[in-house]
Design a binder for these strands. Sequence first.
RNA 1: GCCGCUAUCGUCCAGGGGACUAGGACGCCGCCCUCUCAUGGCGGAAACCCGGGUUCGAAUCCCGGUAGCGGUACCA
Length: 467
Amino acid sequence: MLTHEWANTMRVRFAPSPTGALHIGGARTALFNWLLARHERGELVLRIEDTDRDRSSPENVAQIIDSLRWLELDWDEGPIFQSERSGRHQEALQALLDSGHAYHSNATAEDVKAYKRRHGAERGFRGEPETGGAVRLRVPEEGATVVHDLIRGETRFEHLHLDDPVIARADGSVLYNFAVSIDDLDARITHVVRGEDHLSNTPKQLLVLEAALAAGLGGRAQPPLYAHLPLLHGPDGRKLSKRHGAASLAELREAGYLPEAVRNYLALLGWGSGDDSTVLSTEELVARFELEQVSRNPARFDEVKLRWLNGVYIRAQPADQLGARLASFLRNSGHPEAAGDERLQRAVEISQEKIHTLAEFWPLAGALLDGLRDDPKARERWLGEAGRATLADVRQALAGAEGFDEESVGAALQAIAERRGLKPGEVYQPLRVAISGTTVSPGIFESVALLGREETLRRIDAALGAG
RNA sequence: GCCGCUAUCGUCCAGGGGACUAGGACGCCGCCCUCUCAUGGCGGAAACCCGGGUUCGAAUCCCGGUAGCGGUACCA
């Protein structure tokens, strides 16, 4: 990775705007910056771009930081709040005004349109210096600004096509393209890694940077190198939004995804490991991550694949760790009593290979911890006359079983199937419905053993008496 | 409209002039395992956007078209 001669350490930044929750796209950008910084032993700066006073809120800031923490991404500096840097911004703005790189302009959006109608649609707006109004950056008439993008190669923007951009409002407050440039300069950022939607902004920022440097701002610093990441889309190919599936990190968390699985999955969106491997620990991701391997194509967020990957991580982790995570998940998702249940750990163990997300645990095994589920179809199908007859046998066998662990339960039930000449399922399904209320549960022997003899018989009796 | 980016299985990622009868993963289909649901194993269907050009040879390089996306704010 090339480093600037003016800096011996790579410095990258993640700069979310607190106008909403942290989106999956934003999280991917954060992750890529984090991976890059860790891979290159560089530094990551967190900056909150809150210059849009109307849409930014402290709640959103807290939410974003909370999401980053949940994803277990850390940073070396910040959060720096852009809004707290207005003094510096004013100073820089004045310097550009003084040096003639910027000028006051009262031109409105309508004036710009009219200008283009006169000069041709492809011709950028150029204003005349006035006494008041907004501040525009003076774009050089000749030449072009070339973005040497680390992912896309060179992209050339002819100055002819660029409007003189407004960099400060009439009230003096600065705008995004200006604040970003000055902040990157001051923070001595060496590499800007962000979404492709910023590619078109880059020449403006480069122009601000050049003007600032020419005006004596920034000391020995130089403009950063840029890398524009392909955008992330929803499953339908359209922009990611709340309308389809989980769109924010918070929703992913509530859906029971594990942060390490989310990191793994997100890393695969727009980046290839180089050797076709898909399951990569965070350590491996850090070791392998290269900006050069980042794809230029937009990617779709596919929750189905995330779910599969999440299942891989769920199965791979130690059962006691999964138990602890499930306890905390249940506590936060409306089942605090189950979180404290001493049988939870065992219930988790017998469910581990059957669930893909933390949220899938409760529907599968919750009946073992609290009460019966209500599934009329299941009762109708399995607790009819034949089912109840079988169940009566099952009751007797279980009541008289030697012990009540998985093995003895299994032995007792198998004996019934043989004696009555039934297929295993014909014995197990009535029992499953009797003890859980539904047709889906962890393994029947394990489930019965977990319930214990007393509770199992109680539930069987209820089923036998019900019809 | 103008400016820009992108284009390989349904999706993600490989392949970057001959090793391509285009590889891996998810998903899908079939079979096996099996007490439900899963897991696991085996097998299968499935793609180089279109048209020109360069070349002995193009998925790969060039041009054009088309499509998708982004920008075009006194938003970020």
